[in-house]
Computed example of a mutant assay.
Amino acid sequence: MVETHEATVRFGVLNETGDTESRVALTPDIVTRLGKSGVSCLIERGAGAAANYTDDAYVAAGATVASRDEVIAAADALGFVDRPDAAVLAKAKAGTWIIGMLGSFTDADYIDALEKAGLVGVAIERLPRQLSSAQSMDEMTSQNSVMGYKAAIVAADAYASFLPMMTTAAGTIRPAKALVLGAGIAGLQAIGTLKRLGAVVTAYDVRPASKGEVESLGAKFLDLGLDFSAGQGEGGYARALSAEEQAAQQAAVDEKAAGFDIVITTAKVPGRKPPVLLTRAGVEGLKRGAVVVDCAASDLGGNVEGSTVGTQVTDGGVTIIGAPYLASGVATTASDLLARNVADVLAHFVRDGKLAQAPGEELDDALVVAGRAASATAAEK
């Protein structure tokens, strides 16, 4: 039997690390933070090791370290980097809150499974970003920022020359020319990092507001001669373009991309198939030795036509890196940010010493995608 510290809500986190994941949804600092709010924490043994957090550090902060099954059995709420698999759902007791990126936009069957198991599903991907009260809960923003930074580092590592201009006794080496497609959180971080590394950076995004943001970082805005004045969707995310808009954008980007050494694509549409920004023709137009990092690569496709998760080199000598797991490559910082996001979502629902949803509150209604009845029952107790 797991013994937890005196608290009204028990929050559990499991080990999600593997070949592509090194992050953890709870850090020792957050254990201390939640403890001040009357929430006790349980964590599976070794869950934070890949992010450089030891079991001893969690215990020192006040958490209980236990086995996987013990954490699942004792927790009132479970927090995740991604989402739990069917085996975890089967073990979780009815009424347990499941907090994470649940894929609710594209996987109705998963949400239905939560509902049938009597679990309360809290989908962070549905966070209404425009609410000031939600900013500290925005996992997508925090992790995309880490992703954009790492994308620039990965591109620089794969590129077989210097990024900055170098003047030496043997001659002058020109700076690398980098193109960032998608100037959201990830794109802006990629721009800033590439600039600091010395590259000459150009960027493009369909959102009109992005031009000023790009230029404020010292980069040029790529003029495609197109007008997508309604390019911004709800919540600050880029909307999906129409078929005609995509075709026009692709043709223009393909033509312009040929002059760049590095291309980083970051245009994700949350929970949906990402738009193709660089076609096969565009890739074929790149010079030998060019590097493309596709942050949107996944089972749903990517921003680069034909990109897959992993690294491939075309017959023309272009390296394409499909990299959806970049944030995991900066596991300590990414975990610090993600743990704060998840903890603040949890804390939002702790009311009068219980986990409960407030019916009619915008944030609650947006995030709770399964188990509303269970949430309401908890609120009444």
Rank of each mutant, 00 (worst) to 15 (best):
A57T: 04
A356S: 15
A199W: 11
R280W: 02
T20S: 13
R129Q: 14
K256L: 05
P324N: 13
A90N: 09
G48H: 05
A203W: 11
V206Y: 13
V253Y: 00
A117L: 04
A92E: 05
D352E: 15
G329L: 14
D205C: 02
A297Y: 06
V39C: 12
V2R: 10
D112C: 03
E70H: 04
R33F: 07
S22V: 00
R351P: 02
L26R: 09
Y204Q: 10
Q143E: 06
L127H: 15
G103R: 10
A51I: 00
A343F: 12
G118L: 14
D344E: 15
D315G: 13
V206P: 05
S298N: 06
L222G: 01
K256C: 07
V283T: 15
M140P: 00
I264K: 08
A297H: 06
R68F: 08
L346Q: 06
K220R: 11
V71G: 01
A257Q: 14
G18Q: 04
G171C: 05
L181V: 15
L42I: 03
R372S: 12
L217K: 12
D365M: 11
D109S: 15
L197A: 11
E255C: 02
D157T: 14
S136C: 05
A49C: 04
Q130V: 13
L102W: 05
A183N: 10
G259T: 10
D336V: 02
G18D: 10
E44G: 13
K273M: 08
L179E: 09
H5R: 15
G289F: 04
S335E: 12
Y110W: 09
E305T: 10
Y53R: 09
G225D: 07
G317P: 07
S133A: 15
V330G: 00
A374V: 10
V13G: 00
Q189I: 00
A343Y: 04
T17A: 08
V88K: 06
D261T: 03
R83Q: 10
A267D: 14
G236M: 00
A123K: 07
A219F: 05
A47Y: 02
T96E: 14
V253S: 00
L363D: 00
F349N: 14
S161Q: 13
V318L: 09
D19Q: 00
L34P: 12
E21K: 14
L188T: 03
E125G: 08
D336Q: 10
R288Y: 00
L127Y: 14
A370H: 08
L363W: 04
E245R: 02
P128C: 11
M147S: 15
A370M: 11
T8F: 03
Q249H: 06
A281P: 01
A267F: 13
A152P: 09
T64Y: 06
A169H: 07
V342I: 15
I153Y: 06
A77D: 10
V318W: 01
D261W: 03
P175I: 14
A123D: 13
V88C: 06
D76I: 01
A178W: 05
V330P: 00
A190I: 10
D299A: 15
Q130T: 14
A238Q: 09
G95R: 03
A7L: 08
G148Q: 09
L114W: 01
A356Q: 12
A160W: 04
A379S: 07
P164N: 10
V291Y: 02
A248Q: 11
L337A: 12
L277D: 15
K268I: 05
K381M: 08
L337K: 07
K273A: 13
E305S: 11
L346T: 02
E16R: 07
